[in-house]
Each structure stands twice: as C-alpha cells, then as structure tokens.
C-alpha cells in the first residue's frame, strides 16, 4: 500500500493534485457555484421564453434567430464584449450573463419544439375533459415535453461547465485558473490537473443529469411503444 503510494506520488499531476487539494476544492466550489446559479437562472428565464414563443409563434422566428446567433459567438469573445460594457466588467455579473446567454438556444429551442410536438390528440382529449388552459399546460403539455426540455437543459449545463472555465480570464477563481496559470507559467502539470479535473466534472455532470432524467421523467414516456 505504502509502495503504491510511493509510485503514485512520483506521478507529477497526482502529486500536484494532492498537494494543492484545498485550492482545487475552492476552485471547484466556485466553478460549480457559477454553473449552478447560471443554470437555475437559465431554466427560469428560458423555459418561460420557450412557453411564450409557443403561445405566440410569431415571435419564435426572431427569438430563435437571436439564440442561434448568440450560440455562434466564441465564448471568449462574448466574455470580452461583456467585459467592456458599463455595469458588467470583471467578475461574476459578466460570467453569469454569458453563461445564461449560451443556454438560450438549447433550452428555448427544446421547450418550443417539445411543446409543439406533443400529440394534438392528447391535448384535444385534455381540453375535451374540461381542463383549463393552465391545467393543460402544466399537467399535460409540460410533463409530455419534459424529455426534450430536460435534454436541452442537460446540453446547456454541460456546455456551461466548459464555458465557465474560460471565465477565469475575466476574474473568476475557478478550475480554469489552473489552466490559465499553467499556460502562462509553462507549468504542464498544472495544465493537466486543471484540464482533467474540469473534464471529469463536466462528464460527471452529464452522467448525473442522465440519471436525474430517468427519475424526473414519467416512466410512461420512457417506455417503447407497444404494438
């Protein structure tokens, strides 16, 4: 056991990881905090926008157009642009704003598409049984659209973890910092630790979201259609 530890200790990134564990934990906390706050804001905002453009389809073209343009902007460029705006500058406001903006396309589009593709006969039956518009939306449409909506949130969240890494350049103290400093100091070990930790977190969150989806989405929708 001791011997194994000796060997592992010789591997530079592992040694670096344990030597700097407290700093890495702080970075991870900051990283997760930023992404979580971002994703919650994004869900509240973009699910509402998705519902609105479903109700007023005339708006859908414009809103989705803006979303797909935002998605195109390289993330460091968006950070850069926000940085120069009055009221944003270095720090969390800019970082959060960028993250929420990037989540626009996957969430708004999936909400819109999902609500539209709910089988019309289900809605007809729901209305015919005397459900109000709100009841139809919350009890029938949203639960049925949930698999697609959830997939959008999942994509957004994983993307946000990645984009948050770059926020180190606008003052966030997160896992990107290891990469940033590693590059400027030409410290490969630091880079590797930073890159590996952030990748593991991103992949882990992706897998976690997959599991969460299985619990959150009605079992009835996860079944194969029988003949």
């Amino acid at each position: 056991m001791e011997f194994l530890r000796e060997i592992l200790w010789q591997v530079a990134p592992i040694r670096y990881f344990f030597e700097n564990i407290s700093r890495i934990i702080t970075y991870t906390q900051n990283h997760l905090e930023l992404t979580m706050v971002g994703v919650i804001l994004a869900i509240i905002l973009w699910v509402s926008v998705g519902i609105i453009i479903y109700r007023y389809p005339k708006l859908s073209h414009g809103v989705l157009g803006i979303a797909s343009i935002v998605m195109c902007i390289p993330s460091i460029a968006l950070y850069g642009i926000l940085l120069t705006l009055p009221g944003f500058g270095l720090g969390r406001t800019s970082a959060l704003t960028a993250l929420v903006l990037y989540a626009m396309l996957p969430i708004v589009r999936n909400v819109f598409v999902a609500l539209r593709s709910v089988d019309p006969s289900i809605l007809d039956a729901a209305k015919g049984m005397g459900m109000s518009k709100q009841e139809v939306l919350w009890e029938v449409q949203i639960p049925n659209a949930l698999p697609t909506i959830f997939a959008g949130v999942r994509v957004a969240l994983v993307m946000m973890v990645g984009i948050a890494t770059l926020a180190t350049y606008i003052g966030e103290q997160n896992l990107g910092r290891l990469i940033q400093h590693g590059i400027t100091r030409t410290h490969p070990t630091m880079i590797i630790v930073g890159a590996v930790v952030v990748s593991i977190i991103a992949i882990g969150i992706d897998l976690l979201m997959g599991l969460l989806g299985k619990h959150l989405i009605s079992k009835g929708l996860q079944l194969e259609e029988s003949k």
């Binding site: 890494t165 770059l166 990107g176 070990t189 880079i191 590797i192 890159a195 590996v196 969150i205 992706d206």
Partner: peptide
C-alpha cells in the same frame, strides 16, 4: 463521442500543450 463533447474546449486545447 458524447462524453468527449462534454470536455471543455479550453481543457482540450490546454492538454495538448504539454
């Protein structure tokens, strides 16, 4: 491939540096 896409761009670029 899907897991690979979860890897942040900065991490990927950086990992090639060493």
């Amino acid at each position: 491939v899907n897991i690979g896409q979860a890897v942040p761009g900065l991490a990927l670029i950086a990992i090639f540096l060493p």
